[in-house]
Simulated scan of single mutants.
Amino acid sequence: MRIYGVTGWKNSGKTTLMERLVADITARGFTVSTVKHAHHSFDVDHPGKDSYRHRVAGAQEVLLASRNRWALMHELRQAEEPQLSDLLVRLSPVDLVLVEGYKRDRHPKIEAHRAETGQKLIAPGDDTIRAVASDTKIEGLDRPLLPLSDARVVADFILGEVGLA
């Protein structure tokens, strides 16, 4: 399975870039899945819904299905957060998996960077970051600088990196 990440600090444009990359790459005829890391607790169902009631009652997993989609919720119940590799094996085969977040994992990545955040680049200390997509010129960068607002250019780079160009 081909895997490529988009990483960066909060408000750096990761999610917007991911959304545009998925749209661009799927428009080229490739299949894409995504994995998003959340640093906080989240819910995909809501109090009062049947699936929520099943989960709160103690179900380890709740699979919710309809004719339009299905979702599997797995409760960790104090178990450790799974590694990215453990999650990837649960995905159906696709041409490319785009991963948002997971800064510390060793898969190749693009760093999203917006000047207005005032954050320093992650790239100088991380050899898994193969290029930086930014809204500003960055002096002294030792890897490719791509335009953050041009998903086609970023997609071309990623597809070249994973052998799908």
Rank of each mutant, 00 (worst) to 15 (best):
V153R: 10
K103E: 03
T136W: 00
D127H: 07
A151F: 07
V56Q: 11
D43H: 13
T7W: 01
A23M: 06
H54L: 15
K36W: 05
F42W: 14
P82W: 05
A38T: 12
K137F: 14
K14A: 04
L63V: 15
R20Q: 11
G118H: 02
M1G: 14
R2L: 12
A112G: 04
P93V: 00
T34Q: 06
S149L: 11
V99N: 05
A131D: 07
L84R: 05
A151M: 05
P93H: 00
V132S: 00
K49S: 14
H107V: 07
R143T: 14
R28V: 15
T31K: 04
Y102F: 15
S41M: 07
M1V: 14
E111I: 07
V162T: 09
R114F: 05
G140L: 04
I25D: 01
A133I: 12
D86L: 02
S92I: 02
L64E: 10
N11Q: 13
L87I: 15
Q78E: 13
R20Y: 11
T7Y: 01
K109E: 08
D43C: 09
A133T: 07
L91S: 11
R20E: 13
E139P: 10
S66M: 10
D43K: 09
E139M: 11
R20M: 05
S134A: 15
V89F: 00
V56R: 07
L87M: 06
D24H: 11
V153W: 03
G125E: 10
S41I: 10
S66R: 08
P108E: 02
S149Y: 08
G8K: 04
P82T: 11
K137M: 14
I25A: 03
R152T: 15
A155N: 03
D95H: 13
L98M: 12
H113I: 01
A23F: 05
K36L: 07
T26L: 04
L87Y: 01
H46W: 15
T26P: 09
G13K: 00
D24W: 00
G125K: 06
R104T: 06
T34A: 13
Y102M: 04
G163P: 14
